[in-house]
């Protein structure tokens, strides 16, 4: 491969915005001149069913058209997925994989529960932040804010700018402001080891 590609895997449940997050992030990084790919894994489309999303980001054109088996970042939108074997949260993680978990628990607890030895674990209560910021516990946007704090794929400024532009087409100013607040809070409130 010509240039390093960052591979991100999203784990959520139907309705939490894993697909939206995977694609939103892919499109948001384009403003920084990056190449990207964002795609969900399609199965039975049921609210509440485990859903995975995938984002690839690179400085070079991306040619891979397969699932992400060995992610650089694993982002979990729903902490109940940590106990689900079929959700496969730790699958394919290497010693360098970084975990971002939406939970009230500490990184140390999550590390124990997932049985992760290497890598890094960060936690943030994204559902609470979302609830307080825009009145619905949809954690996907704050989790992208948390990612911006630990990954060199998008700056907080670019993320916020992109969010404002893309949300303008669909949402009221109040919803946009709430999401910006949520992204900024998660960026700051992320708990690291």
């Amino acid at each position: 491969m010509a240039a390093a590609t960052t591979e991100i895997r999203w784990h959520g449940r139907g309705g939490q915005g894993a697909k939206t997050a995977a694609i939103f992030l892919a499109e948001a990084v384009l403003d920084q001149g990056k190449h990207s790919q964002g795609f969900p894994e399609y199965g039975p489309e049921r609210r509440g069913a485990p859903v995975r999303g995938f984002t690839r980001i690179s400085d070079a054109p991306i040619r891979l058209h397969c699932s992400i088996a060995e992610p650089d970042y694993v982002i979990v939108l729903d902490p109940t997925l940590l106990d689900s074997t079929s959700a496969g949260v730790p699958d394919g993680a290497s010693a360098d994989t970084v975990f971002l978990i939406n939970t009230v628990e500490s990184p140390a607890n999550i590390r124990k529960r997932l049985g992760i030895k290497g890598g890094k674990v960060h936690t943030v209560d994204a559902s609470l932040i979302a609830q307080e910021s825009f009145g619905r516990p949809i954690p996907n946007m704050p989790m992208i804010g948390a990612l911006a704090a630990v990954a060199d794929v998008i700056t907080l400024e670019n993320l916020v700018a992109s969010l404002v532009v893309r949300f303008k087409k669909k949402f009221s100013q109040a919803v946009i402001d709430g999401n910006v607040t949520a992204v900024e809070r998660a960026y700051k409130e992320l708990v690291s080891e």
Binding site: I23, A26, E27, L30, K34, H35, S36, Q37, G38, F39, P40, Y42, P61, I62, H65
Partner: peptide
């Protein structure tokens, strides 16, 4: 073009 792999994947 390939269903989902291309049709539902956002690419630059």
């Amino acid at each position: 073009y390939d269903g989902f792999i291309i049709s539902h994947t956002s690419e630059s």
